Simulated assay, not measured.
Amino acid sequence: MKPWIRKAHRWLGLIFSLTLLMSSGSGVLHTVMTRTQAPPPAARPGNSLIDPASIKLTAPDAMAKLPGEATAINLRMIAGQPHYQIFTAKGKPGYVNAVTGAVDPAADEIYAGEIASAFLGGTPVKKTDYLTAFNREYIGIFRLLPVYRFDAGDGDGNRVYVSTVTGSVTRHTDDGKQFEADIFTLFHKFGFIKNKDIRDWSLTLVTGGTFAVSLLGVALFFMTRPRKRKG
C-alpha cells in the first residue's frame, strides 16, 4: 500500500498545488482588504428636515392615488419637498408629492441621486446603472436589490450603490478598491468561471482534492514513522 499512497499523494499534491497557491494568496489579500476597505455603509436617516406645516396631503389620500394596497409608507424629502414613499405588492415604491398631491414617477431616481451625492459630500453624480440582479462588482454579500449605481466622475472612479428602500448607500467603492476585490473574487472564488453551477462544482472538486492530499499526507506520516527496535 505504501508505494500507491506515495504516488497518489505526490501527483494529487502537484495537481492541487496551484489551487492552494491561489487560495492562500487570495487569503492574504483578504486580510489586507479588511484593513484597507471600509465595511458597507450603515443606513442613515435623511439629512433634510421636514416642515410639518408644508404637508397638505394626508397619508390615506396619498395611498388612494396609487393602484394596489399599500404595504408600507414613509415620508421622504425629495428635491426640497416632502413626498410619501408608498410600497405596494409590486415592489418598487411609488411617490406622491405631499404638497401638491401629484404622483411623481421620477422621484425614486431623484431620491437615489440625492442620497448618493450627500454620501460623497455633495459631489455631483451620474446614474450609470439600475441593478435588479447581482453582478461581479455588486455581489450577493451586499444583499439588497434593486439598487441604483451612481458614479462621481472623478479620477479615482468613486461610485456608490443606493437602495431607496432603506434610504442608504449599500456599497461604496473606487477603482483601487475594486481591483483588490476583483483579484480576490477571481482567485479565491473562481470568479473567472461565469456559470455558477460549474463554479460551485469546481470549488467543491478542488477543496475535496486538497482534503484528500492532506489525508494521504497524514496516512503517510504514520505509515512511514520509524519503528522501535525490539529489545
Rank of each mutant, 00 (worst) to 15 (best):
T204R: 07
I115P: 02
S163A: 15
T34V: 11
L120Y: 01
I183Y: 12
P41D: 01
L120S: 00
V103L: 08
G13R: 02
A79P: 05
D197A: 14
L216W: 01
F192C: 10
A102E: 14
T100S: 15
L21V: 15
K194M: 07
A38Y: 00
V32N: 05
D151Y: 02
T123V: 11
Y84K: 10
T128W: 06
Y84T: 10
K189Q: 13
A106M: 12
A118N: 14
A59S: 09
I5V: 15
L49Q: 13
P146N: 05
P146G: 12
G80Y: 00
G209S: 07
F221R: 07
G27Q: 09
G27H: 08
I78L: 07
G27S: 12
K7P: 00
R10K: 12
Q37S: 11
G68H: 03
A212H: 00
T100M: 00
G68W: 02
T71G: 12
K189T: 13
A79R: 07
A181I: 13
S214E: 00
Y148H: 15
V99C: 08
T19P: 03
G113K: 13
P39E: 03
L20H: 04
F184M: 14
L145W: 06
K2Y: 09
M223A: 12
F190M: 15
N74P: 00
R159P: 04
S117C: 05
G27W: 07
T207Y: 07
G91C: 11
A112K: 01
